[in-house]
Structures are given as C-alpha cells and as structure tokens.
Design a protein around this nucleic acid. Structure first.
Lengths: 199, 199, 199, 199
DNA sequence: TATGAATGAGAATTCATTCAT
DNA sequence: GATGAATGAATTCTCATTCAT
C-alpha cells in the first residue's frame, strides 16, 4: 500500500528490508539512481554521481549495469509493478470504489519511480510501455467500478470511457502537477465528482 | 485556432512573417532549437546540432544565447503566451463553455512549444512558471464557467474547485498522455462529464 | 608628481582632463584596459570586457588597435614615460636625495600602469624593455646621489652599486609586495638606511 | 641546498624518488605543469599542452585536477614549502647571518616553482598566501639576525624592521629582477650593506 | 567480484578577429 | 569612422565506458 507522503528514501529503505537477498551494492546503486533520476532527470545524471550517492566505486556501477541505460531499465523493470489483480468493487458505490483505486494505485512504485515513469517516457521505449500498461490498467479498473455501480441501462459506454480516462489522467499526473505547478488535487474529491457525473 | 497537425516549422514560419524585423539567424536558431528540444529533449540536444540545423556557425548560438539554457528560456518567453482575456461564458451552458475552453487553450504556442513546455518544466524555473500560469488560467476559466452555469446559491466551492482542477489536469496532460500511451481523451466528453457532475 | 595613494581611476581621470585632444573613445578604451590589465592580467582580460567597460562597441577596439597586443603595447608606450632628466642631488645629503627619488620616481605612470609593467614583463618584450629602462634609470640616479654624497675616497664602487640596486629593487617592487603580501615598506626609512650604510 | 642551475625536471625527479608512491601520471602532470607555468604563465598554458608534455591523455588531467586552477594550487601546496626552522644566527655577525639567509631562502622549491610563486601570486589566493608566508619568514629571520647582532639596548625597532623588510624585498625579487631586467644583485653585498646600516 | 585509473569523443563555452554596412 | 553580427579555432570541462589488477 502506498502512502503518497512517504518519501522516496523511506520507501526504498522499507523495500530493502523486505528483500534482503539483494546485493547491497546493487540495491544502493538503484536507490541512488532512483533519487537522482527523479530529481534531475536521466540525461542530467552522471553515473559518477550515482556511484557517489550510492557510496560505491564508479566501476561497480558498470559491473552491474554495463550501460547507463540499463540502470533506468532495471529500475523500471524491478521497481514498478503494475498489479493486475481482480478489482474489488462494491456495486452501487462508484465513488468509494474509485477512491479506493486512488488510494491503492495498481502500481507498486515509490513516488520517485512514478516521476521517473513520466519524465523518461518520452525518451525510452521500455519506460513508455510500462506507463502505457499502468494507464490502461487504471482505466480498466475505473471502467469496471463505474459499470458495476451504474444502473443497468447502458448506451453511455462513451461517457463511462471518458470518466475512466479522466480519472486515470488525474491520478497519474496528480503528483507531477503538484510538483510543477504547486496545485494540489484531492483524488477523493475527483472520485466523488466523477461518480456523480454518471447519474 | 491551432491545427494540431501543423508542424512546428510551418507554425514558426508563419510567425516569422509577422515579425520580419527578427534577425534571421537568431530566429533560425530558435526554430531549430524548438524542433530539436521538442523531439529529443533539452538535455539530449547539443548546441552544435542546433547550429547545424539552423545553418549557422556554432559560435553564433552563443552570440545570441550566452548559455545553452538561455535558448530554452527565450523560447518559452517568446514563443508561449498564456492569454488572459475575458472568459466568454454562456450562463447555464457549462459544458459548452468548457468545451470551447478545451478547443482553444489559453495558450498561444506551436505544438512543438507545447511539448517543450510540458517536457522541460523540470529543467528550468521559468518553464515551470509558465506552465503554472497556464494551469492557473485554465482553472480560473473553468471555475468561472462552472459558477456561471450553476444555480445561484450553491455553496460547494470545494466541488467547483475540484472540478476545475480536474478539467485543467485533463487538458494539460491530454497531449502528453496521448503521445506517451497512445490513449486519446475526448475533451468534449470530459467537459460534459464535469458539467454534469455539478448538478 | 605621483601620489602613491591616488587610485588608478583618479589618476587617469586627471590625465584625461590634461589631454583633451585625445579621441574620447580611444582614451576610454585605454583607460578600461589599464584598469582590467592591472586587475586580472592581460591574458585573462577579453577584449570584449575592455569594450564593455569603456562603453564602446567591440568593433571599435579593433578599429584603434588591430590586435589585442597593440592595446598593451600602446598602453606601455603612451602611459609610462621613463624621465631621464638631470638628477637634483645635494652633496652630502644622500638620504634626502634618495627620499626625493622615492617620492618622484623617474616614471610618469599610474599605479595601475606600474603593476602592468611588472606583471606583463615576463610575457611581452616591449614591456620588459620599458621596465628595464626604468630600473636602470633608478639605479643611475641612486648611484649619482650616493656618489655625490659620499666623501671623496672611492674604491667602494661595488658597495655603491649594491646600495643603488637595493634601493631600486625596493622602490620598484614596493607596491607589488604590499599588494601581494600586505606588507608595507616605507621608502624614506629605506633611503635613510642605505645612506647610513655607506658611511 | 639549492642549485639554481638545476632544472625543474631534475629537481622533481629527485623528489619523485623520495615519494615513490606518487602515481606516475599525476606526478608527470605536475611536472609538465611546473615547466609550462614557469615558462609561459598559467593563463597562457592550455591544459592540453600539459597533458601532451606529460604524455597522458587530456582527460586524465581532469581526473586528478577537476579544474585547471587545481593544478596550480596543488603545485604550490605540494611543491613549495616555507621552512620555519630555528634561525642559526651568530651574535655580532649580522652580515654573515643575512648572507646565509640569502644563500638558503627558507623555501624548499625548484627554480621553476619559485618563478611560479612570484608570477602567479595574482592568479590565486593560495599562491599569494604562500608568498606572503615566505616574505614574513624572511623578515622574521632577518629581524632576528639583526637584533642579535646589535648592541643590547637599541630601541630603534623601526629601523630594524625597515632593514629586515628591505632585505626580504631584495631577496624575493632578486630572481625576478634579474630575469626581467638582466640586472644582477649580489645578495652578499646587500647583506653587508644592511648590517652596516644599523651601526 | 571490486576498484579506480585511464581514455577519448564530444559538450559547452570563450574569444580574437573579420567584415558588411 | 563606427557598429555589432558573424566566424571558427581553441579551450575548459564532462562523462560514458574500458580495463588492468
């Protein structure tokens, strides 16, 4: 379960504890890269700074990740998981279901990893793919929740689709928006808004 | 009115005609930078490539823009305008007003510049600020449209605010989302959705 | 007559007034160069900074001084004059004569120009020559003063020579020493010292 | 004991033997810089020339010395030592003591490093400080020698001070003067002169 | 595995100098 | 004379990557 206010550092610390079999150095390299890529971007981050922040010698980074891009790819591969479990939706409670979706994104990833997912999606195919899958999964869940909650009469599949997409857009970019523009959006309010819209 | 399919080149060519006093070289440098920054990103674009595409010697880039970042800043300063005109809103027609807002973002910028605005918001404060102003302006207009459309005594300013922010988020990132995930969002549907939500 | 405490700025201002026929721009360029060469050195001073400080366009510097080195050479040629007048020496008063020599170096040059003379002597022949001539002239005068002041018995030409050279060394480098090490030397005290030494 | 005619290269070669743990490349870079800075000056020496003379690739210079100025600073830090040992002064023999001081400046540095110390004092604070310390140390020793040599109750500390400062000035700049103006000063003669002056 | 020196291509930037107007 | 855009070689500095140990 993600705590949106949890820092990247705390997040990865807890994860490190959870998978102690990770080579310490390799994990520290990924931790450092996560922090730096999220902060300054992949291109602007020298591998030497990663090594420095990780407290490992420069050569070791290339021992584990032969090319710099492998650090990013590994980060995305190992630290963003789009969970595709069954959606738990209560019939009739669209707002609540969306709220729960907002609280538990189908994404196991630190806030830092989420930023990386957006920021580097332009440049690197594997990142873009992961982001696409995440987007689809949120939409799928939102659609499911809304369909379940709505009274039988269909026909407005398009409206449900728009609602799901809207919700996904807000969830996905909420953090970025806040960081970039300083404007905060409350996912619960959006959930309720969208649920209302479909009645 | 923006033609999303218009290329950055065509767009700026038409603008060049509008300001013929622009030094040819300086304009060509900005044109080239616009294209390259939009394509590969600021960090990944060497100034030498800008000069090459602009057809000017490397040194001239630094004659006009002492530091590389000045190219980006000038681009944003000179080629993106957040328009703050009066909102034309019809009382009672929230959906239509939002739709019109979606169709004509209060942003005068080429498609390329829009990508740059979103993509490089991390890179420099001035870009971030411009994006923030755009976000605020969209929210302001959406809020105005929704307030006008709603029956007099509604006290739930919070809901209106959430609706406006949601709309802004969807609009702003619609292009990015589409580019990144291939998923298209129909702004009109979102406009109607949000208008509905407040009844 | 030089006031050692007079600043370079005041000095050149008074001189500018004294030769109003100087082309204003050319003079301002030399003024600026004088200040900058003295402060940061010839090599470290771009011609663009000279133009900027002089308040003239960059091209004008090269109009008057086709190569950068010409600025330095002109500066030395025009703003350091080793005066080779007759020495006024009172027989019997070596200390007083040396003191007067210290107070009125046989050099018409601002403090800034004196620094330039030392600093750039390594690199540029014309500067070195001027410095050499100045050194010789001081020694010549000091020798003359000392010979005049001393009782008839010669034989200690070597001692007189050492005394004159010492005095010249102290005079010439006194400013530099002070600037570099913060240690101040009183020329009068040295004059008296040297005069005493020869009795 | 310094051999003034010993080349910088020979000098540092002998020192290299003394610290064989020095990385060969780093030492060669400093050797090359020493030679080039002494010859043409810091500003006029490109790092590429240093690398070339050292026989190392350009990048290695920056591996050891992240900024060019670090080469100069390291050179001064590591290759000039102002020795602050006890002064060996014979009571009553001021001239001899000063002579000995002249012959063995309290400075362990190659001839090249001495030139650099004087020439680049403007360029960086650390160089200036080192030169200042050398000046102070010479003055301290000269003062000590003169005080010891003088009859007990002399109260004219000011004259001793001027004498010491004069001696330091002559010693410090003797090399420069000679190089620049071709005029040689005999330190022994100056020592005797100054000793005489205080009687 | 682990290390940090070594490498060199390439990036940003500087700057003297030219030149058309 | 006066101007500032234009030029490109040279310079400082960066950095991914290799490699011997």
């Amino acid at each position: 379960m993600d705590h949106p206010l949890q820092t990247a550092k705390a997040w990865s610390r807890s994860r490190r504890r959870a998978r102690p079999q990770d080579g310490d150095a390799r994990t520290r390299i990924l931790d450092a890269a996560e922090e730096l890529f999220a902060g300054g971007g992949y291109e602007a981050t020298p591998t030497a700074r990663i090594a420095e922040l990780a407290g490992v010698p420069k050569g070791l980074v290339f021992h584990y990740f032969p090319r710099k891009i492998d650090v990013l790819v590994s980060l995305v591969d190992e630290r963003t998981v789009v969970t595709e479990e069954e959606v738990e939706a209560l019939p009739g409670d669209a707002a609540g279901t969306l709220s729960r979706l907002a609280r538990g994104l189908p994404l196991r990833a630190s806030p830092a990893m989420r930023r990386i997912l957006f920021r580097e999606a332009d440049t690197h195919l594997s990142v873009r793919e992961r982001l696409g899958r995440l987007n689809s999964e949120i939409i799928r869940r939102a659609r499911f929740a809304l369909e379940l909650a709505l009274p039988g009469g269909r026909g407005d599949a398009a409206r449900v689709e728009a609602a799901a997409a809207t919700f996904a857009a807000v969830l996905l970019y909420q953090e970025s928006i806040c960081l970039l523009t300083g404007h905060h959006i409350d996912p619960d309010a959006v959930a309720e808004l969208i649920a209302n819209a479909l009645h």
